[in-house]
């Protein structure tokens, strides 16, 4: 059963009382909220996600609620509770839905350790994944949103999960987070895309979330081989340019963008070595989305044993 099987009022009631057990990628979140904008956001952007049976094992127990203090009468706020504990400072009530998205990212990024976790968008085509690690402001989500509206499968907008045991990428398709001008750019680029209501004045500026394509959600259990590591950079007026990046440099930059590379110790080093060895690594500068789509469309995975890596121990 998917979230869409519940009517908006059923969903709202369920979220208020027992909560829902929402499946995103390989994780189950027990989610409760009394905040109407959050219920609406879930009804809109999570309609195609499976609901797991009530009262099963949940990976994360999350509650979005309004703090009980005097302020609630003057400046209403929203609070993200992880299993009853406050994780972030309260935010204005208006930002409750983006807060849920950030909170769900926090749940995964601070607990999951069977995967090397990279702050990156990931898309797939023809059985191969492209990881796009990038600091905020590089336009990775804009590029990701454009790609998934032009035939690429969304694997994740924020978290690349590379399974340590076999190096495969585990999909975690969730709404794509867009900010400021990117929102209108993608709206124009794909008028059929579904967006949550814009929220202004967050720490990231104005934000809105784009619904993940239904096909990406349905195929969330299919792990994928990574073929490319691409560092995107939006630069106004620039001609699209894909530049090969030495693997050792790519190694360090991906590690810099990883949540748990250092935590994983030797396992992390080995997983990263394997990932970089299997991938063609590039810096990618672009300004026009259509050019980017064209260049991504022409990507070819590397021929087997093209790299000459040596790995050893002192």
């Amino acid at each position: 059963m998917n979230v869409s099987a519940l009517t908006p009022s059923e969903l709202k009631l369920r979220l208020k009382t027992a909560g829902i057990y929402l499946q995103t990628g390989s994780f189950t979140t027990h989610l409760k909220t009394t905040i109407p904008s959050v219920a609406e956001g879930i009804g809109l952007l999570y309609a195609d996600y499976p609901l797991v049976e009530q009262d099963c094992f949940a990976d994360f127990h999350v509650n979005l609620t309004r703090p009980r203090n005097l302020r609630r009468w003057f400046k209403p706020q929203a609070l993200f509770l992880f299993d009853g504990n406050t994780i972030f400072k309260p935010l204005p009530l208006d930002q409750a839905f983006p807060m849920l998205e950030w909170g769900l990212n926090w749940c995964v990024s601070t607990h999951v350790n069977h995967c090397l976790m990279i702050h990156a968008a990931v898309v797939e085509k023809g059985g191969f994944a492209a990881i796009m690690p990038a600091p905020p402001g590089s336009g990775k989500s804009t590029l990701c949103a454009a790609l998934v509206n032009r035939g690429w499968r969304l694997l994740s907008d924020e978290l690349a999960l590379i399974r340590v045991s076999d190096g495969k990428l585990i999909p975690l398709p969730r709404p794509v987070s867009l900010k400021n001008e990117s929102i209108e750019i993608i709206r124009r680029y794909e008028p059929n895309a579904i967006f949550s209501r814009k929220v202004a004045d967050t720490i990231k500026g104005t934000v809105a979330h784009m619904k993940a394509p239904a096909d990406s959600i349905a195929r969330a259990a299919e792990a994928v081989q990574v073929a490319w590591v691409i560092f995107p950079k939006y630069q106004a007026g620039a001609t699209a340019c894909l530049e090969t990046l030495p693997q050792s440099r790519a190694f360090m930059r991906v590690a810099d963008n990883s949540f748990n590379y250092s935590l994983l110790g030797l396992q992390g080093f080995k997983a990263m070595t394997k990932l970089i060895d299997a991938s063609l690594c590039y810096d990618f500068t672009y300004s026009k989305l259509d050019d980017a789509i064209e260049i991504f469309g022409a990507l070819k995975p590397q021929a087997a044993n093209n790299n000459h890596m040596y790995a050893n121990e002192l």
């Binding site: 990976d59 607990h111 350790n113 069977h114 748990n260 250092s262 935590l263 994983l264 110790g265």
Partner: peptide, 11 residues
């Protein structure tokens, strides 16, 4: 979950 936490304690 148990194994995730073991990674942290080993670190």
């Amino acid at each position: 979950h148990l194994e995730w936490s073991r990674v942290i304690s080993e670190k």
